[in-house]
Design a protein around this nucleic acid. Structure first.
Length: 883
RNA sequence: GGGCGUGUAGCUCAGCUGGUUAGAGCGUCACAUUGACAUUGUGAAGGUCAGAGGUUCGAGUCCUCUCACGCCCACCA
């Protein structure tokens, strides 16, 4: 059997992947308009790639995303859909700017201000360009079948147009406003950040309890004494009997170099149990206090500036000092005045800026916000209207965001994240969208003295200055599902064809940052949902379950994995064993394991190609001739159905396992072995192999594309998805029971003959049996011994006749009776020696009487076990000598 | 403080709407292997399914409580 094609003995991913990548690119089939005509080609499938930041290189998180999305889009494409997957990159405003500035400081000792806006931005752009090219290259290595002709960038001209259009419309509707508010200030990045960009870490702090002055009857507690120079009120609980008498009273008091005017206010939000039960209100430097100040109409005094130093307003004692210096000074002052009543170590959450790591300093600032609660007139889409909201109805952004998920128009997988989503919306505050950085979309806002104009171009007249601020990067990302499809041109062909997109696949960690913002923007601007399904994958962790980070040195680079084990193995290791919304651990070993599988698939193909005369595509379903044929064809059809179902249900791990089990445990281990004995299986082998490769294609595109070439049918990339053509042969009740008996019998043969590794695995059977267990057992033993005596290498499966039934038995190795007898005799001798030893020990009365009872028990148990073992070995020896 | 989740073999995890004897991969051990594949094959060992109680003919699966761990949100000054 060697007339077919002879492939290399092992699959060398490195040698084929680049070539295949090039073939795919040249084919143009990543762009839907180039796809060959098919009946259902009008049905669209669209997925927009979550754009990687242009700050560096791809990591495992990206690799998971690419593996899942590529599997989705390849399946859709093969299923005949008009499939498009749009790639792009994200300018990642703060992240990129701070990275470039950091490099600038390290290499040249200059800050961005030393360079100036224009020159600095040129540096950032150059860096982004370089990073972009690396990322694109990496995506190609992964085998991502994205449509490069539609590539987008969150900061290019088209997206800039979309951003401006969105901003202007929201401003007109009163949803974007400018306000002087307490915001999260990052003193390191020197910019405001949104609530979502603040991270919390547990830390300890000293809680100081003190009075503002001798004449102030209420003591308060704080971890930040330096802010107290900006206090304008003391808040107590309205029902607190201790402070009832003071509510509404006002105090003027000299405090640490300044004079405070404090009003005692009552508010139910005060926790009576904490500290003294009274709270010093600092409206300018606490978001919570700012809310209080708003309700109670308290004045706001800014005592900390943008570089985390005390302002002139803070008074003579601390003005100009850093917050830490000021803290020490205030405490010292309190101590001297005898006002400090107590100090206590408490654990506290400290807030940091996500990107720069700076300690967040809440302070009041003029910023731009999106109002999530304000009512406006909803404009519904004419083509894909949102159900349950009328055109022109009064809604708020918040209510819209809730509605589309609650009504099931957007489905989140796994479902439990819907709860998280609603919980987040319930607590949502207005979104601060202005950033005091340079890299990003500059606000289309102009100022002239007190005049403010929102316009893309400079307003008429002299003296207009453009707002130097840029937009939060997530503002442009929020438009991503439609800004990539041609919006704001509402008649763009792509927008008409592909929006709403079919699925959004991304990590759960950006549910709020991004998914929620896309829902906000799309429902508001288009009156459409941005996507029908949200599939959230988990984070990729290292072997010990830690996040991968450069500082920990536990980063597994997907490119290294691809280099060592191939892209297919890397993809499989990320697809199998990961379930939506759950984090996954990955290790190099795991990837190596899947490399073995790609090689297995390669060798299965190699065997099939070698054993047939003519490698060709089998057009008509082959007619099964034997039991084994009926079985494998039936099983294969079942697998085809299952795989299709798993794809539709986004159950990628199940899908992979189903396919792997069939490929390895059924097709290779059984049918290929049977095919070595029973001839005439060429058609079936080819039929199953060709289709099996296609089923695998979305998961491991490279090796399957390479192997499929041999069938001469064109690219697997656009091959029609296989559809089941056989029914599984039925096995009736009676047969099942008899089958069970046979398996039991076989197992007993195994132990009786002490040939645990020698006999057989399982049997494949269908139809009615009239089994006589004895003959089966005998024939097995016979096959085994005969082969061994003739010194031939036997096949790994045998067909055994039991009555009129053919039974396929898988065999592995055979008994060399003589060798086996010697082996058993040796073991027997050893066991007897051990037995003697135990007898001796237990016969010793001193041991039995003085040793701890447990030890004696243990020895007795050992004697029992050894006795059993001797009996078994003697039995084996008896059987063996009669074979 | 609120919410979500996890706890199943040495390790990583499956186990869907409750149904025979709880599975896979890796690891370990034993044996085999010249002809598709040592990136292989066959087997073995290894589990009171975190614990307690309950519902049920029947619970890894449903309910209640407890313990441990993780994540998210809010934030107490």
């Amino acid at each position: 059997m060697s007339k077919g094609i002879d492939l290399p003995k092992a699959y060398e991913a490195k040698q084929v992947e680049d070539g295949i990548s090039a073939t795919w690119m040249q084919s143009g089939f990543f762009s839907p308009e180039n796809l060959p005509e098919r009946e259902n080609r009008r049905e669209p499938f669209s997925i927009i790639l979550p754009p990687p930041n242009v700050t560096g290189t791809l990591h495992m998180g990206h690799a998971v995303m690419l593996a899942i999305e590529d599997a989705m889009v390849r399946f859709a494409r093969m299923s005949g859909k008009n499939a498009v997957w749009i790639p792009g990159t994200d300018h990642a405003a703060i992240a990129t700017e701070s990275k470039v500035e950091k490099m600038l400081i390290e290499k040249e000792g200059k800050t961005r201000h030393d360079l100036g806006r224009e020159a600095f931005l040129r540096r950032v752009e150059a860096f982004a360009k370089e990073s972009h090219d690396t990322i694109v290259n990496q995506m190609k290595k992964m085998g991502a079948s994205v449509d490069w002709s539609r590539e987008a960038y969150t900061l290019d001209e088209k997206r800039h147009d979309a951003v401006n259009t969105a901003f202007l419309r929201m401003y007109k509707d009163g949803l974007i406003y400018r306000g002087y508010r307490v915001i999260n200030w990052d003193p390191v990045g020197k910019t405001a950040v949104s609530d979502e960009e603040v991270e919390y870490k547990e830390g300890t702090a000293t809680l100081y309890t003190f009075r503002y002055g001798k004449d102030v009857p209420i003591a308060i507690s704080t971890t930040r004494p330096e802010t107290k120079v900006g206090d304008t009120a003391i808040a107590v609980h309205p029902d607190d009997p201790r402070y009832q008498a003071f509510i509404g009273k006002e105090f003027d008091v000299a405090f640490a170099g300044t004079t405070l005017h404090l009003r005692v206010i009552a508010d139910a939000c005060v926790d009576r149990e904490f500290g003294t039960g009274a709270l010093g209100v600092t409206p300018a430097h606490s978001l919570a206090d700012a809310d209080l100040a708003h309700v109670h109409e308290l004045p706001m005094i800014q005592v900390i500036d943008e570089s985390a130093h005390m302002t002139q307003e803070a008074g003579t004692l601390v003005a100009g000092k850093s917050t830490l210096e000021a803290r020490a000074l205030v405490i010292e002052w309190l101590r001297e005045e005898g006002l400090l009543l107590g100090e206590e170590e408490v654990s506290q959450n400290l807030s940091y800026a996500q990107r720069s790591g700076g300690v967040i300093e809440p302070l009041p600032k003029e910023q731009w916000f999106i109002d999530v609660n304000k009512s406006f007139h909803f404009r519904n889409s004419t083509r894909h209207p949102i159900d349950g909201v009328e055109d022109g109805q009064e809604v708020s952004l918040k209510s819209l965001m809730q509605h589309v998920v609650r009504s099931g128009q957007i489905k989140i997988i796994p479902d439990r994240f819907s709860k998280t989503y609603f919980h987040w919306i319930d607590h949502l505050r207005d979104w601060n969208i202005s950033r005091q950085i340079w890299f990003g979309h500059r606000l289309p806002v102009w100022y002239r003295n007190t005049e403010v104009k929102v316009s893309v171009t400079k307003p008429e007249g002299e003296g207009w200055e453009r707002d130097p601020d840029t937009l939060d990067t997530w503002f442009s990302s929020g438009l991503w599902t439609f800004s990539t499809l041609g919006w704001p041109n509402e008649s763009s062909p792509d927008l008409l064809a592909y929006h709403p997109t079919t699925v959004m696949e991304t990590g759960y960690d950006i549910l709020f940052f991004w998914v929620a913002r896309m829902i906000l923007m799309s429902t508001y601007l288009l009156g459409e949902i941005p996507f029908e399904t949200v599939y959230l994958h988990g984070l990729v962790l290292d072997e010990e379950g830690r996040k991968m980070s450069k500082s920990l040195g536990n980063v597994l680079n997907p490119l290294d994995m691809i280099d060592r084990y191939g892209a297919d193995a890397t993809r499989l290791s990320l697809l199998i064993g990961s379930t939506p919304g759950n984090d996954m651990k990955i290790s190099e070993e795991k990837v190596a394991g899947f490399r073995n599988f790609t090689n297995k698939l390669w060798n299965i193909s190699r065997f099939v190609f070698l054993s047939v005369d003519d490698v060709k595509s089998i057009e008509k379903p082959p007619v099964p001739k034997t039991l084994a044929d009926r079985w494998i064809l039936g099983r294969f059809s079942e697998v085809e159905k299952k795989v299709t179902h798993h794809f539709e249900a986004h159950e990628f791990s199940f899908l992979g396992e189903t396919l792997r089990d069939f490929t390895w445990n059924e097709f290779a281990d059984w049918y290929l072995e049977i095919a070595k004995i029973e001839k005439g299986k060429e058609e079936i082998l080819l039929y199953i192999l060709e289709r099996l490769l296609l089923l695998w294609h979305p998961f491991m595109p490279f090796v399957t594309e390479e192997l499929s070439k041999n069938f001469g049918k064109g690219l697997a990339l656009i091959a029609p998805w296989p559809v089941a053509e056989y029914a599984l042969a039925s096995i009736d009740q009676q047969a099942m029971m008899e089958l069970q008996e046979i398996i039991t019998a076989i197992r007993s043969v195994r132990s009786t003959y002490h040939v645990n590794s020698q006999v057989m695995l399982d049997i494949v059977v269908d139809g009615l049996l009239s089994p006589d267990v004895e003959p089966l057992v005998k024939s097995l033993a016979k096959v085994a011994s005969i082969s061994s005596f003739q010194g031939e290498k036997p096949a790994q499966a045998a067909v055994v006749l039991v009555g009129e039934m053919e039974i396929y038995v898988k065999l592995e190795g055979f008994i060399d009776v003589q060798k086996e007898i010697t082996h058993v005799e040796e073991e027997l001798a050893e066991a007897k020696r051990y037995m003697q030893l135990l007898e001796q020990k237990l016969g010793n009365t001193a041991f039995v009487e003085h040793a701890p009872a447990a030890v004696v028990e243990e020895e007795r148990a050992k004697r029992e076990a050894t006795f059993d073992r001797i009996q078994k070995l003697e039995q084996s020896l008896h059987h063996l000598s009669h074979v």
